[in-house]
Amino acid sequence: MSVRPHPLSLVIAALLATTACHRSDEAATTAPTAAPAPATTVGAVPTQAQADPQMQAVLDQLAKLGGKPVETLTAVEARKQPSPADAVKALLESQGKPTTPEAVAKVENRTFPGPGGAVPIRIYTPEGKGPMPVVLYIHGGGWVIADLDTYDASPRAIANAAKAIVVSTHYRQGPEHLFPAAHDDTLAAYEWLLKNAAKLGGDPKRIALVGESAGGNMAADIAIAARDKGLQAPLHQVLVYPVADKAMDSPSYLENANAKPLNKPMMEWFAKNYLGDPAKAADPRISLVDQPNLAGLPPATIILAQIDPLRSGGEKLAEKLQAAGVPVTVQRYDGVAHEFFGMGAVVDKAKQAQQLAGAELRKAFEAGAPASAATSMPAPATTVAPAKSN
């Protein structure tokens, strides 16, 4: 992976290098991502970047499945619409390739007792001897749609790449269960995992978080809640295009207002169905960049897609975390869209992102100790260059 430091980042690095006191395994962490590639403009309005051929093939297949705009549907109707995962399967079929999921040693469906009743979880165990490290994975879907089946590919890939047991959790969804129901359920999943990791063949001292989209938002909130409640801290948090900012007028929202598979009208619909009251978008559990205190959190890996209204929010969160002394690694993948992470079967950049997540998790598990407020200081600020289009 090439490294292209931002000039400002180099200045910050020089200023902070003499005071950084991270463990040697944190010395290579990176800070806020490079600025997005310049967008073309029509007048003053930036236009959406072009998808690379592999990503475009998935988007074309998704369009062929004939789904209706989510924002025109009820939540019940929206949950029945074809998903990007369906598009990947259809694309594989059209190419004459097998559609069997990535293999792991064992998959088990269970439930745990959540605040509002039993919550479905799916446990993925890779090949190898235990006790293994453990990852709590939280799927996306705007807190309204999707489930463990929709997001089956990502936890499989993480289990193999991180060499860890992955517990994928569901949660109550809006509008039937409004904010903070989903947040409460996922925090409860983490607390349950702390108590039960050993029973799953895992190492209860080596637990990390991974979340996609709305799941990335909730993974970050769990890390904050663990700090504030005095729970065992996760060793690492991988936030994949997380919902991180209430603002919907950012550069990435302007560029990708009509993007697929996620756009501004859909985000407004998700907010309406989960939050109920639009004013609740300002709650720092939703707008992570407005958290008053981000210090003392575990190191973070933030994975972003260029063609995604959430990209700017993820970049801003990275800046806020790094300013608070949290080691942050950021990688933006150009030419791909929101939801690309689980598309490793057909999109090469998804495989790259999965391998990055796995490598960062393995590094954290090997280090075996979470960052703390007492030891956390700003990391040297270098920047990972965005992965370019094919």
Rank of each mutant, 00 (worst) to 15 (best):
Glu93Pro: 04
Ser252Phe: 14
Lys205Ser: 15
Asp52Ile: 05
His170Phe: 13
Ser250Thr: 15
Gln232Tyr: 09
Asn109Ala: 15
Val135Arg: 02
Pro386His: 04
Ala223Phe: 01
Pro101Lys: 09
Glu339Phe: 12
Asp228Val: 02
His183Gly: 02
Ala337Phe: 11
Gly174Tyr: 01
Thr382Cys: 08
Met218Cys: 00
Gln322Asn: 14
Ala28Gln: 15
Trp192Ile: 10
Leu235Phe: 10
Ala226Glu: 00
Gly313Ile: 00
Ser250Arg: 13
Leu297Ile: 14
Gly67Pro: 12
Gly344Arg: 12
Asp348Asn: 11
Ala27Arg: 12
Thr33Phe: 03
Thr74Asp: 12
Lys205Tyr: 06
Ala367His: 15
Ala350Leu: 13
Ala359His: 01
Ala337Glu: 08
Glu77Ile: 13
Arg311Leu: 15
Ala34His: 07
Asn109Gln: 14
Glu360Cys: 08
Asn390Trp: 08
Leu321Val: 00
Pro120Cys: 06
Arg311Asp: 09
Lys129Cys: 03
Asp334Cys: 03
Leu15Cys: 12
Ala257Gly: 10
Asp290Glu: 14
Arg362His: 09
Ile165Cys: 15
Ala90Ser: 14
Gly314Glu: 00
Met218Gln: 08
Asn256Cys: 12
Lys64Phe: 04
Thr30His: 08
Ala14Lys: 13
Arg172Asp: 03
Ala247Thr: 00
Leu136Val: 05
Leu10Tyr: 02
Asp52Gly: 14
Thr301Pro: 05
Ala247Trp: 00
Pro53Asn: 11
Ala225Met: 12
Asn273Pro: 10
Met266Pro: 01
Asn258Cys: 01
Trp192Arg: 09
Leu254Ser: 04
Met55Val: 06
Asp52Leu: 06
Lys106Asp: 14
His170Gln: 11
Ala324Phe: 02
Thr47Leu: 03
Gly344Trp: 06
Met218Gly: 00
Gly117Cys: 06
Tyr137Val: 07
Pro278Gln: 06
Ala324Glu: 05
Tyr241Asp: 04
Gly202Cys: 07
Leu356Ala: 08
Pro115Trp: 08
Ala157Phe: 04
Asp308Lys: 13
Leu310Pro: 02
Leu317Val: 04
Gln50Asn: 11
Thr100Leu: 11
Gln322Tyr: 11
Glu360Ile: 00
Arg4Trp: 11
Leu136Asp: 06
His177Asn: 13
Pro120Tyr: 06
Asp149Met: 09
Leu304Phe: 05
Ala353Met: 12
Leu73Phe: 10
Ala257Tyr: 09
Gly230His: 14
Ala78Ile: 03
Gly114Glu: 13
Leu200Cys: 10
Leu235Tyr: 08
Pro251Thr: 11
Leu317Tyr: 12
Leu321Asp: 02
Glu319Arg: 08
Gly141Tyr: 08
Gln48Gly: 07
Val384Arg: 11
Ala226Met: 04
Gln354His: 05
Ala305Thr: 09
Ala364Val: 09
Val134His: 02
Ala350Glu: 10
Tyr151Met: 06
Gly66Leu: 11
Pro69Gly: 10
